[in-house]
Structures are given as structure tokens and as C-alpha cells.
Nucleic acid binder design. Structure first.
Lengths: 184, 184
DNA sequence: TACGATAGTTAGATTATCTAACCATTACTA
DNA sequence: TAGTAATGGTTAGATAATCTAACTATCGTA
């Protein structure tokens, strides 16, 4: 179920068709208590979905020449422009990556003219990071596709299902966010 | 929203607290049609969840010294042991990665004595890959934790919600699996 | 004023993939 | 059936995205 880049597939596979099926089967054979099976099954399904959703996103973003973490950075800057002053440290903290990684990311985005760095006058150790007009233009070009991809994940759900799903998502959101030691 | 390894966080951040909130806000400001907002919002939530679910999984697997793709490989072998003969090509196809990557993965797992390679008698180009008793033992040790982590993702949902959620998952599953050009 | 903390960068390592080229073997075809 | 093409697996080398540790400059403070 690992994430993968999209390869052209040639061989006619000898193994059973793809998908999550086999794993579900394996689960049926190995799950401990019978009571847990259903939820294990659903969890597995979620895991599988997660992999695939991120793959979908990668595919959608590829034409724009950026990856998810780069978009994250741009969104973050776009979000804060004209409000808070954004420093690399704050970005690192916010995105849950190391300062060194932020430097690398900013270098990459900067080389393309999408972000700017300016030394702070007050504290000359600090850098204020901003998004350039070109960067903003890129974001504004990417976002519609991004949102519609997000939305398209829900195709086929009727309005009742959507309503419940939304409530569920909020709960899961809680669930994950309060989980200790994960995400930071 | 990029995936990240788990870093110890020190700094008291200047930027608003983490989470998906800011992105939702950004979405509200930039989503095209108003009608799409709700679904964009949910899609975004799903994307965020996906990142985090995979992070959770990474954290759970870390103590066993394996990663998701390595577990995938072992599960695959475990699943087929005593049934189909499994070749590296088939694995590559099944997991959606390149043959070269399978070689690397098998080398890694083989060095630890968890998988075996044996040349086919029929077609001497082929290799039959198997899981060793040690490999099986590892899998059987990891799986309970794996399943319970899967299950724990659903904590807090009541039985009604679970029922609907299951139906929804199936639909999403369909949705993704029939999507062209993704996953393979 | 000197020492420790903080901000950002650099250098180098790691991991997980990929592509392209290669060798051995097998299948096909003229 | 000899010669060519395809297949299965490996190797070599590249790339991307992270990480840690060490470094430089600056700042706050005892």
C-alpha cells in the first residue's frame, strides 16, 4: 500500500488484481478478536485511501512543477501575506520540518522567483519571507484545480452521505489531532 | 500539509496554532463557486487526514524497524505463501514500483533473513520469492499492532456513524480505483 | 563585557525511489 | 534451427526530500 509514483504498467500480472482486497483477506485471517475485524477493516480501507488520495494529489500538482510541500509553503505564505511577518523558523515549526529543510525549500522557490527573503531591520538574525506576485499568480492558478480535486474525491456521495461524512471527518480530525506524539 | 517525520518541537511558535484551520480559511477566500466550498472543504479535510494517517502508521511501524513499503512486501508474501509462486516482477507490478526497487527492497529484507530468493527450475530467469519463518514471525508480531492502529483511527464514532462511514468508504474506494492514470 | 541562546545557513548523510544499461535465458520466426 | 526479439532480474548512477551536526552572525543578559 506504499505510495508510489505513477509508472506505466506493462506486464500482465500473474498475481491477483490490485487493490486492497488481498489485504482485507489477510486481515480476516489474522485479526485478533472477531469484534475488531470490522473496524480493522475500515481502518485498513482508510489507510489505503490515504495512500491513494496523496497519489492523486501528486498527479494533480505535477503539471505545475511543484510538490505538496512546496504548495504547502506557498499556501502558508499566501495565507499570511499582509498579516503576520513570517520567518523561516516559524515556517519550520508550522510545517513540522527542520529549519534546514525550510532553507532548502526557500532556495528552490526563490530560484524560481516565487518567494522573497528580506532581512529584518529590528533583529538582524531574522529573515522575513514573502510571496512574490509571480508566486501569488502561481498559487491562484493552482488553487482552483486543487479545490476541484479535493471536491472530486467525493463524487458519488449523495447529500445525506455528505452530511454524515462531514460530521465523521470532524471527529476523525479531533481524533488525530489529539493523538500524542504525532505530527509534533 | 506535507508528510513529515516526527521532530521534537521546541520553539513556541509565533504563527497561529497548527492544524488544518488556516487552510480552510484560505479556501474560503479563494474557492471558485460557492457551491463547491463545502466539498472542497471536505476534500481538504480528507487530504489533511491522509497525511496524518500515514504519519500515524509510520510512527507505529518505527519500533519494528520497518517502513510501510517493507511491511507491504512482507504482507504480500505472507498472503501468497503456499499459494501462488511470487516473482519480483509480479511484486513490482502489484505494488506499483519498479523492478529495480523490488530488488533493493528484497536485498534489504533478505539481509535480515526475512525473505528468501530461489531460482526457478522451469524458467531459469525467474526467481521465486518467499517469506522465511523469521519473516512470518515478524509479520505476526506487527500485525496486531497494525490492526489495532487501524481500528483506533475510528475511536469516537458511534455504531450508526460507523455503518454510514463504511458505505462511504466503499464508494470512495470505487471512486479512486476507477480513476484513470492513478495508481497505475 | 562576556557568555549563552537564537536565527539562518551549510555540509554531508540517509532513504526511497527512479531510469538506463546490462546479462542470462527463453520464445518466436523466417 | 539459427538469429533476433522479448523477458526477468540486477547493477550503476541519479534525484528528491528529508535529516543531523556544526557553523556564523547577532542578540539578550548576568
Amino acid at each position: 500500500m506504499a505510495r508510489k509514483t505513477v509508472n506505466e504498467s506493462t506486464a500482465d500480472q500473474q498475481l491477483p488484481a490490485l487493490g486492497i482486497g488481498p489485504y482485507l483477506e489477510l486481515m480476516d485471517k489474522t485479526a485478533a478478536q472477531d469484534a475488531d475485524r470490522k473496524s480493522s477493516r475500515m481502518g485498513l480501507l482508510m489507510l489505503w485511501l490515504s495512500d491513494n488520495i496523496l497519489d492523486v494529489m501528486d498527479v494533480e500538482l505535477a503539471p505545475y512543477g511543484i510538490t505538496e510541500s512546496k504548495l504547502d509553503m506557498l499556501l502558508l505564505l499566501r495565507l499570511h501575506e499582509g498579516r503576520e511577518l513570517v520567518t523561516p523558523s516559524a515556517i519550520a515549526d508550522r510545517l513540522g520540518i527542520r529549519r534546514a529543510s525550510v532553507t532548502a525549500l526557500l532556495d528552490w522557490l526563490g530560484k524560481r522567483g516565487w518567494v522573497s527573503r528580506e532581512q529584518s531591520a529590528k533583529d538582524r538574525r531574522m529573515i522575513h519571507v514573502g510571496i512574490t506576485p509571480e508566486g501569488r499568480a502561481l498559487v491562484d492558478q493552482v488553487l482552483p484545480a486543487f479545490w476541484s480535486t479535493c471536491a472530486s474525491l467525493l463524487d458519488g456521495l449523495d447529500s445525506e452521505e455528505r452530511k454524515v461524512f462531514e460530521k465523521i471527518l470532524e471527529k476523525l480530525h479531533q481524533n488525530i489531532e489529539t493523538r500524542v506524539g504525532v505530527g509534533r
